[in-house]
């Protein structure tokens, strides 16, 4: 399969601040590619270099075979962009916005169809300023899709949305993928990346620290499971840590998270805990998530986790 975009040894600085440092990756046609990482990791910078909105200091970027900076007008005909911070002219209405954007492209799409696709057909006459956060974000998706682009870029699509708005946005991303377009999205929600992305590049401090399919990234942590519970009464951390298969013990107030490795270890730890006679509550055994991969690869710890690693 021909790749939709490639980034080779890209670097970008703002003054003395290194936003992106020597980054390389390839985005395959038809996949949902996630650029994830904490705020300030360089996600938006890298996205804007691929979109042709920023000029890289070093490195080579190709999108659909084009140089995003030198051939930006040719490229912009074929990509759809949703920006992290964007606005529309004051007093514009929903239908006017999507019609205007359809008119800006050589391949004029169907503004009505774009509105239907994001569920805003009945809000055509509404002032954009009066839309809810979720509706507004759906409108910006419609503006990115109206000309039926080959690659769609979504920057922090769901930041600031309520749970329902987030789910609606996720459905739209899956819909874009099903129609055959390539999707490149940035997010700092690991859950979102886990649910939407075929492959994920984890960024930290301007560098790629991990890149693979979500499944393989999680599997890379090994057979790690977490036994989480709230205890009532005294609990000796050292005794828990000494149990076979326990990798580390973390505490968040009364909540204890015991990371274990090895088949059947989770069950044995639970039994051992019961035998200590400590009363505990809300016991859960969790498999690792992308968030754990992120924490493991960046060396970051959960905020509030004050227990040292075993």
């Amino acid at each position: 399969m021909r790749s939709a975009a490639s980034v080779e040894r890209l670097s970008k600085r703002y003054g003395s601040v290194r936003a992106v440092e020597d980054v390389s990756f390839t985005i395959e046609t038809g996949e949902v590619f996630g650029i994830v990482g904490p705020n300030g990791a360089g996600k938006t910078t890298i996205l804007e270099c691929i979109e042709g909105l920023r000029r890289p200091d070093e490195g080579r970027v190709r999108v659909l075979g084009l140089d995003p900076w030198c051939e930006r007008y040719a490229l912009r005909e074929r990509i759809g962009v949703q920006l992290q911070t964007a606005a529309l002219p004051e007093r514009i209405r929903v239908g006017e916005a999507v019609t205007l954007f359809a008119d800006l492209y050589r391949r004029r799409g169907d503004p009505e169809a774009a509105l239907r696709r994001v569920g805003l057909a009945d809000r055509r006459g509404a002032a954009v300023a009066h839309l809810s956060g979720g509706q507004r974000q759906r409108l910006f998706i419609a503006l990115a899709l109206v000309h039926e682009p080959e690659v769609v870029f979504l920057d922090e699509l769901t930041t600031g949305l309520d749970p329902q708005g987030r789910r609606d946005a996720w459905d739209l991303v899956r819909d874009i993928r099903e129609r055959g377009a390539t999707v490149v999205l940035t997010t700092h929600f690991m859950e979102e990346a886990e649910r939407l992305c075929d492959r994920v590049a984890i960024f930290d401090l301007g560098r790629v620290v991990a890149l693979d399919t979500v499944g393989r990234l999680i599997a890379s942590l090994g057979e790690e499971r977490r036994v989480a519970f709230t205890h009532i009464g005294a609990l000796d951390d050292a005794a828990v840590r000494a149990l076979p298969g326990v990798v580390r013990v973390e505490r968040l107030g009364d909540r204890v998270v015991v990371s274990v490795r090895g088949a059947g270890t989770a069950g044995r730890v639970t039994t051992a805990l019961e035998e200590t006679g400590v009363a505990f509550d809300d016991l859960r055994v969790e498999r690792p998530t992308l968030e754990d991969v992120f924490l493991a690869r960046t060396g970051a710890r959960l905020p509030g986790a004050d227990a040292p690693e075993a």
């Binding site: 912009r76 962009v81 920006l83 911070t85 964007a86 529309l88 954007f101 492209y105």
Partner: peptide, 11 residues
């Protein structure tokens, strides 16, 4: 407000 930026991302 970012209105021009949004337009910049089009042709």
């Amino acid at each position: 407000t970012g209105t021009l930026r949004r337009l910049q991302a089009t042709p």
